[in-house]
Structures are given as C-alpha cells and as structure tokens.
Amino acid sequence: MTTIILAIVIGAAFGFVLDRVGATNPGYIISMLRLGNLHLMKTILLAIGVSSILMFAGLLTGLISPAHLSVKTAYVGVFIGGALLGIGFAAAGYCPGTSLSAAATGRKDALVFSIGGLFGAGAYMLTYSHVKAIGLLDSVLGGKATLGKIAGTKYPALFDFSGEWVGIAMGIVFIAIAFALPASLRNAAQTGKNTGKQPGDAPTAAIHG
C-alpha cells in the first residue's frame, strides 16, 4: 500500500516538475541538442549533481539504504540504443518520459510519438532473441559497474576509490558545469530574439537564471 502511495506521489511530482522545467516542450529539447538554448542542459546537469551529492551523502550517513540503488548493466547495446534514442530525441524533441508527459499537456505530436514508441518497444520484444544472440547484450567494463566502490552493494567498481566520495565529487563537477555553461553556444543574435509568443511556449525565450 505504501509503495502505491509513493508511486503516485513521486510520479506526480516528477511529471509536474518535467512540465515546469520545460521538458515537455520539444522546442527546448531540440534547441538544447542544436546547442541554441542550453536551458534544459543546465537544468539536467544541476539535477543530476544535486541528487547525486545528496544521495551519496545519504549513503555515507546511513539515511539512504544502499539496497535502493539499482545500477544497470553496461554492454555494447547501451551505446547503440543510446544513439538510436538520440536520433529520435533530436528529430522529434521527445524521449519516453517527456512524450507521455507532453501528451498529457495537450500536445498531439507527443501522443503520436508515444504510439510510435509502443510499436518500437513491441519491435524490440520480437527481435530480442536475435539481438541477444549476436552478443549486443554481453557485459562490458564489469557489467553493473559504478565509478567507485559503493559500500553495501555488490556492484564492481571501475576505479579503486570510495564510490560515495567519487559520487559527491562527480556531483560537484556536474553542478560546476551547469553554472559554467553559457545560455547558448550559438550566435546570440539567433537565440536571444524576443519571439512575441506566450512565455513558456517559445523555445527560444531568453532564460534568466
């Protein structure tokens, strides 16, 4: 029962925040990937940094149970799958979570994307045996590995350091990059224009932190 309440509360908070940071607007995602408006890049880097530092601090102090961690296996298909996702992410401006969320905000192209996604996931179900047979799913770099050794977990470490402190250091680096990145890597005249559209709609609206 508790799990069900947590699923609803955390899920709703996630969807709400995804919408409020602009992630349900494919314009922001496309603008991030064409390096025109790095608002979402800065947001995501800060989010990973904050969650990482607090999570590893929670592990060090015992406030968070290491049993809650879930590290996925590394294999060649992770890179290929990431690249496939990147292509559609750029072409449409949606990923699995943001397309479902954006469809709920009334975006019809997001609904079409999600239906395409159901077919894509179905296609993977049908081809899984072949993908596995050709070795794309074979572990590399230790499989379910983390950068450093995290106490209380069985995950192998890539480097012989304390995983908790590596995580905190990585979090600080991510936050530093979030602050250091400019608002845009393209010509300011192209991206800083006032589009006259309603705020939040225009992917190029200037973002002031």
Partner: peptide
C-alpha cells in the same frame, strides 16, 4: 514523430533504459 517514437523506444529497450 511516429518514426522517432519507434526508434527511441527500440533504442531505449536495447539499452535497457532511457
């Protein structure tokens, strides 16, 4: 959008995550 959704979810499942 449909083609992208197809490719994105195929890729996400191949990678076991999005």
């Amino acid at each position: 959008a449909f083609a992208s959704g197809f490719v994105v979810l195929y890729g996400a499942r191949l990678a076991s995550g999005c």
